[in-house]
Design a protein around this nucleic acid. Structure first.
Length: 804
RNA sequence: GCCGGGGUGGCGAAAUUGGAAGACGCAUCAGCUUUAGGAGCUGACGCCGCAAGGUUUGCGGGUUCAAAUCCCGCCCCCGGCACCA
């Protein structure tokens, strides 16, 4: 069936115009895939139900843009290509070809004329252009510092790409490597990125994850001067109320103060050795909680508590992180478990300065772990007796007067490291000149094309393979014209995907990244659908780009995706994650071959709640197959007459029809595809049972409701029923609220809250009438016997509960 | 450890301003029809019971005429973060 429409989508019927008179634009976006080589069932689960929604919106009168493209640059594609000994470019474009063919099977309303591929020069030209704009705005900087280095991928990784100390892509160990790198100052936007989450229609879970990732915390900066020195240790703390309990200070092994103090540290060599060992450890080893805390005392160095003048020892220890806060802490072992463990191990003083009750007697109280809650200040000079919150405020005020402290907000979010020492990415448009230093490439020379080199393998010494291409490296300084060298690192692929949603508005534009008028016509994205695994990476970066481009005056909105929905993950039939090695992979091509595209689409919708996913049930799809075949058969059994036979049955059928229109509409709007399908089944079961009195026009309404789920079948049947136009261009049915009302209902009769009987009565029956009817029931009489009725509860049009 | 989400038949799941638990579908069983392929139709189908009836939403309490739904305590599963001072 539907063979004649197999080429749906290829002949331009889904081409989108930027403006249609009388229609509102609706930007419907799915996360574009990277060209892995095969469209798997997870893609289908993202794209097929999403397309149901897009078609639904279209039939509801919107001018819907639903584009698709490929996130083509990046590590995964490159690693896969290397494994097979194929050039990344050949591999990528071959895969795109295959995947386009597979994508067309879905039957989505993609406008293929807007397809984008991020590894095409006319796309990455604008990725580079945006890099230059960020550079101009001071949001890009270069720095030599320890970075996450994946041993296998031989490149640095962003903080977000290191999962439990391992590479997100290949799972190998990640170590710290001191290397020159490019970073985007996403931290400038920490507060805005946090605050603006409130206004977004996103899953709460995703917003929470971003909030946690940004990790705002309010506290104070406090300076601890160092005896006989101009230097001081500046710490960040959220517990200024515990300053009197600070019995030592700790700086991270990589803290610059160690170098600054130099030989003032009597055991300088030992301290340097400790730092070197810490650097060798992977993030995973260093942050292993189970590990005993280690550290080394800075002999001959003392810090002065700025509040009480006490001299305290200073340690270097790797339980303090170099990159958070100031890389130094005041240690309060009585009120911080980490400090407590360290103090216990090295026999350091533990001084309690917060008590749960005011004026607590601490004489017999020996702590066996840190007391971390708020309480009342104790042994804290003039601050004694204050509540923690007040103590914090007063102490920071006092320190402020001395010039040794101030309030401060800190974030866990770190700047985004974007340089990669890899081949398959957009070259960073920067030139190094001996005279002028770091110089951005002139915009009119973009794109800086990625050369087609033979040797694309990552190198051991931590330089991009591009460094070996003399032709690429050698250039002229854009400023002074003397000979210069190109930057050879490429950009993180997440840079490419941080703005692609803008390009879809105007994908062919060669003068700008997109025409502002077209951007205005479509953006921001009305609904964005994709996996929850992008909750912090892509979704945070894309928000950052939008905000930065807004501040530069290129956009008129600050958030790219107003509404976000995630699909769940489909597991293999064994409940395990699908993988070739486990042999539990479900191939959508095979399913389409066996059951047809409509059937696969609809079953994916029917499986369960969209955001839930779960194991694939190999036989479940048969139910949908049967259903669609029954629909096909019934189409040719309907009597083509509009005469109602058997008024009451026809009335009932009409009522269910209108109820279904209502339910399906509401369910699709709320991404409840599973219940939308089941309501269509209920309606169809009724229609099939009563096909002799089924009105032709009513069956057509059913077909329209079905069409977003089963576009191929419904277009075919629509035509076979004699319609000239396409069903997906029809208007979505509207229900009549008067017609969905029931005339009768089943009155539930409860006795002491237990259901005992039900009777059919007219809607709107009064309590009096209902009681009379109920008490006449034989069964009720029997149970009641001669017991006294204490109370009767009546819920109109629902139930009656007799309490005895 | 912290932050989210969840636990309902053999299975996927419905039902949330508290009001019939298990819609819809899968699997299974019986019958019809075919008697060859995961074909079609009709019916049964939470559990115990021949039945009347009893019982049932992870476990234990509570509120209520009435709890899958609200409250308290506990157990388990999934996802994320994790020495963030």
């Amino acid at each position: 069936m539907a063979k004649n429409l197999n080429k749906i989508g290829e002949n331009g019927i889904y081409k989108v115009k930027d403006k249609i008179a009388g229609k509102k634009n609706f930007y419907h976006l799915v996360m574009f895939p990277y060209p892995s080589g095969d469209l798997h069932i997870g893609h289908w689960y993202n794209f097929a139900p999403a397309d149901v929604y897009a078609r639904f919106k279209k039939m509801n009168g919107f001018n819907v843009l639903s584009p698709i493209g490929f996130d083509a640059f990046g590590l995964p594609a490159e690693n896969a290509a290397i494994k097979r000994g194929i050039h990344p470019k050949d591999w990528t474009y071959k895969n795109i070809k295959t995947m386009m063919r597979q994508l067309k099977n879905i039957g989505a309303i993609y406008d293929w004329s807007r397809k984008i591929i991020t590894s095409d020069p006319d796309y990455y030209k604008w990725t580079q252009w945006i890099f230059l704009q960020l550079f101009k705005s001071g949001l890009v900087y270069r720095r030599k510092a320890p970075a996450n280095w994946c041993l296998k991928c031989r490149t640095v990784l962003a903080n977000e790409q290191v999962i439990e100390g391992k590479c997100e892509r290949c799972g190998s160990d990640v170590i710290q490597k001191n290397i020159e790198q490019w970073l985007f100052k996403i931290t400038d936007y920490a507060e805005e990125l946090l605050k603006d989450l409130d206004g977004l229609d996103w899953p709460e879970k995703t917003k929470t994850m971003q909030r946690n990732w940004i990790g705002r915390s309010e506290g104070a900066m406090i300076k601890f001067p160092i005896s006989d020195s101009e230097e001081f240790i500046e710490v960040f703390t959220t517990r200024a109320d515990t300053v009197f309990g600070a019995t030592y200070a700790v700086i991270a092994p990589e803290h610059p103060l160690i170098g600054a103090l130099g030989l003032k540290i009597r055991n300088f060599e030992e301290v340097k050795k400790y730092a070197a060992e810490a650097a060798k450890k992977s993030e995973l080893q260093r942050t292993d909680l189970a590990k005993e805390k280690t550290g080394v005392k800075l002999e001959g160095i003392e810090a002065i508590n700025p509040l009480n003048g006490e001299k305290i020892p200073v340690f270097s220890a790797d339980y303090v992180l170099g990159h958070y806060g100031t890389g130094a802490v005041m240690a309060v072992p009585a009120h911080d478990q980490r400090d407590f463990e360290f103090a216990t191990r090295y026999n350091l003083a533990i001084k309690q300065v917060i008590t749960p009750q005011i004026n607590a007697d601490l004489r017999e109280n020996k702590l066996n772990k840190a007391f971390e809650e708020d309480g009342y200040l104790f042994a804290s000079g003039e601050f004694t007796g204050l509540k923690s919150a007040e103590g914090r405020k007063k102490i920071v005020e006092r320190l402020g007067k001395k010039g040794l402290g101030s309030g401060k907000v800190n974030y866990k979010l770190r700047d985004w490291l974007v340089s990669r020492q890899r081949y398959w990415g957009a070259p960073i448009p920067i030139v190094y000149c001996d005279k002028c230093g770091i110089v951005p490439v002139s915009e009119k020379n973009l794109p800086i094309k990625l050369p087609n080199v033979k040797n694309y393998l990552p190198t051991e010494e931590g330089r991009s393979p591009l460094a070996k291409s003399e032709k690429f490296v050698k250039t002229k300084c854009p400023k002074c014209g003397s000979s210069a060298k190109r930057e050879t690192d490429t950009m993180d692929t997440f840079v490419c995907s941080s703005w692609y949603y803008l390009r879809y508005a105007d994908p062919k534009n060669s003068k700008r990244f997109a025409d502002p008028k077209k951007i205005k016509a479509w953006l921001p994205v009305d609904v964005y659908i994709g996996g929850a695994e992008h909750s912090v990476l892509h979704l945070l970066y894309a928000r950052f780009f939008t905000k930065a481009l807004y501040d530069m005056g290129f956009l008129s909105f600050k958030e790219p995706f107003l509404k976000l929905r995630h699909q769940g993950i489909i597991l293999g039939p064994d409940g395990q994650k699908m993988s070739k090695s486990r042999g539990n992979v479900i191939d959508p091509d095979e399913l389409v071959e066996k059951f047809g595209s409509d059937c696969v689409r609809m079953y994916l919708c029917f499986m369960g709640p969209y955001d839930q996913g779960g194991p694939w049930n190999p036989t479940g799809i048969l139910g949908i197959k049967r259903f669609l075949e029954r629909v096909y058969r019934l189409t040719f059994n309907i009597k083509r007459s509009n005469i109602d036979i058997g008024a009451s049955e026809a009335q009932k059928l009409k009522r269910i029809l209108h109820q279904t229109v209502k339910k399906t509409t509401e369910d699709i709007e709320n991404f409840r595809f599973n219940t939308a399908v089941s309501s269509l089944m209920i309606l169809f079961n009724e229609m099939e049972k009563n096909f002799e009195i089924l009105k032709f026009s009513n069956f057509e309404i059913f077909l329209k409701l079905l069409s977003p789920f089963a576009p191929y079948l419904t277009e075919d049947l629509w035509r076979q029923l004699g319609n000239k136009k396409l069903i997906h261009r029809e208007k979505w049915p509207i229900y009549d609220p008067k017609l969905i009302k029931e005339e009768k209902f089943e009155l539930i009769i409860q006795i002491n809250g237990k259901m005992r009987e039900k009777i059919s009565v007219d809607c709107g029956v009064s309590q009096k009438e209902a009681e009379k009817l109920v008490l006449e029931q034989e069964k009720v009489k029997k149970i009641l016997g001669d017991q006294r009725i204490k109370k009767i509860i009546f819920v109109p049009d629902r139930l009656i509960n007799i309490v005895i």
